[in-house]
Design a protein around this nucleic acid. Structure first.
Length: 420
DNA sequence: TCTGGGGTCCTAGGACCC
DNA sequence: TCTGGGGTCCTAGGACCC
């Protein structure tokens, strides 16, 4: 038996914890560079503000005082997420952290599941301050579905839906009431193709002819159907798997034309990507660099540059990777364009141990650069991510994000601690 | 003027091997 | 006219997720 526990309007709820006067007020959280809406409080949803809408289209509501806006503060959200997950883990045998705001829990062997769901909600609310909904079912896909129902009919179900507590008729009615695209794994593309065949609701999907589904859409959709029928096809992933790809990229607050500006941003991304590699004890065989102009500006010349190479030796060394990335950047850089975004990609990732073959005749001398990186990681873990930076990163700060409505990091910075 | 970022999995097809 | 069979690995692209 699985539970899916999910923070309601997570980013907005995080912001509201420290701004109690906004409790019943409409608020939104914006993407990086204050670009578009990525989280809405219930009150903002009721105002008709859509997910993903560009901020400039609704900015007038803020100016009129009808809406409060926040830039995204991932430092705050990540810390509250960690607290939420720790709280959940204290009540169930095992959890799988699925994203920053939701996790699956293993409920095998537990009874009185509705009460457990309520306990989870109350404890998270009390200890962390985040409202949640809980779906409980024999498969993960059904648990997601129940969570969706719990959210949609929050007042009716009090935030908890347990599939097994419903009789067949109620289950069928619930399935018939939701479009097929509410099922985990079915997005708008597949939804359109299914609709063309008369499969509109979750109930239609469950009753669809399985071999035909398999033939047309592959094993992924067959699994989704089985899981919706109550047949488990997936288990919890308790151990966080190592990343197979690491991408670091950002849109710029202002457009950049100079090579120096791009070099600074690429250095920053390499620094973050390499640190991630080392954190999961891995190294990369392939490194790529890309730069984009602003695709929305039809009045400007457009250019997308991308180049990658395979490294002769896999690496997780910031200095080595940065050196190569800067060469790649010079290779794809074309003057005369206004660039909006750049980034790096590290792939062909393998555990470092794979290549730590002991030499038969010589003792393994430590690589001075490896030691340097350990020292680097020790310092950044103690004094913060930006306590060491590459010189090339400091050439320009022009590429930094715009975050005009950033809230304090209440829980992770002494200077931002809330005082009353 | 202003439009996010970071991932995963699966499949088809080509290259290559014996 | 007839032109093997079975396999692996890699890559690009498409779909999905939050």
């Amino acid at each position: 038996m699985f539970a899916l526990i999910d923070g309601n309007n997570f980013y907005c709820s995080c912001e509201k914890i420290y701004r109690p006067e906004l409790k019943q007020q409409p608020i939104i959280v914006l993407s990086n560079n204050d670009g578009c809406v990525i989280s809405r409080s219930n009150e903002a949803k009721d105002m008709g503000i859509r997910m993903g809408v560009p901020y400039f289209q609704i900015q007038h509501l803020v100016q009129q005082g009808k809406l409060t806006v926040f830039s995204s503060n991932y430092e705050l959200y990540a810390d509250l997420s960690r607290r939420m997950m720790d709280t959940i883990a204290s009540l169930v045998p095992a959890i799988e952290i699925y994203s920053i705001d939701e996790c699956f829990a293993d409920l095998r062997g537990l009874n009185n599941l509705h009460k457990l769901g309520q306990d989870l909600r109350h404890r998270i609310q009390q200890w962390v301050g985040i409202p949640t909904c809980v779906g409980i079912a024999p498969t993960r896909t059904l648990a997601k579905f129940c969570n969706h129902l719990a959210k949609r009919h929050r007042n009716h179900f009090d935030g908890v839906v347990v599939w097994a507590d419903w009789n067949h008729n109620i289950q069928q009615r619930a399935l018939a009431s939701e479009p097929v695209t509410e099922i985990w794994g079915i997005g708008c593309r597949i939804g359109q193709k299914l609709a063309a065949q008369g499969i509109h609701t979750a109930l239609d999907f469950i009753n669809a002819h399985t071999p035909t589904l398999r033939k047309q859409f592959g094993v992924v959709l067959e699994r989704a159907q089985r899981e919706m029928q109550g047949i488990p096809c997936s288990e919890l992933i308790i151990e966080e798997p190592n990343r197979q790809n690491i991408v670091r990229s950002r849109s710029f607050g202002n457009m950049i034309t100079s090579l120096e500006g791009l070099q600074a941003a690429i250095s920053h991304h390499i620094s973050a990507g390499a640190a991630k590699l080392r954190q999961q004890h891995s190294h990369a065989h392939i490194i790529g660099v890309f730069i984009y102009t602003n695709r929305f500006r039809h009045d400007l010349s457009q250019y997308n540059g991308y180049h990658f190479i395979k490294l002769p030796q896999p690496s997780a060394n910031t200095l080595t990777l940065n050196h190569i990335a800067q060469n790649l950047l010079r290779h794809i850089y074309r003057p005369g364009h206004e660039y909006k975004k750049c980034g790096i990609e590290l792939s062909g990732i393998e555990p470092t141990q794979t290549f730590q073959q002991q030499d038969l005749f010589y003792s393994n001398l430590p690589d001075s650069r490896t030691e340097l990186m350990s020292a680097w990681d020790n310092i950044t873990s103690r004094y913060g991510r930006n306590s060491i930076q590459l010189g090339s990163e400091l050439q320009s700060s022009h590429w930094q994000m715009t975050r005009t409505e950033l809230s304090p990091c209440y829980t992770t910075q002494w200077s931002d601690l809330l005082t009353i």
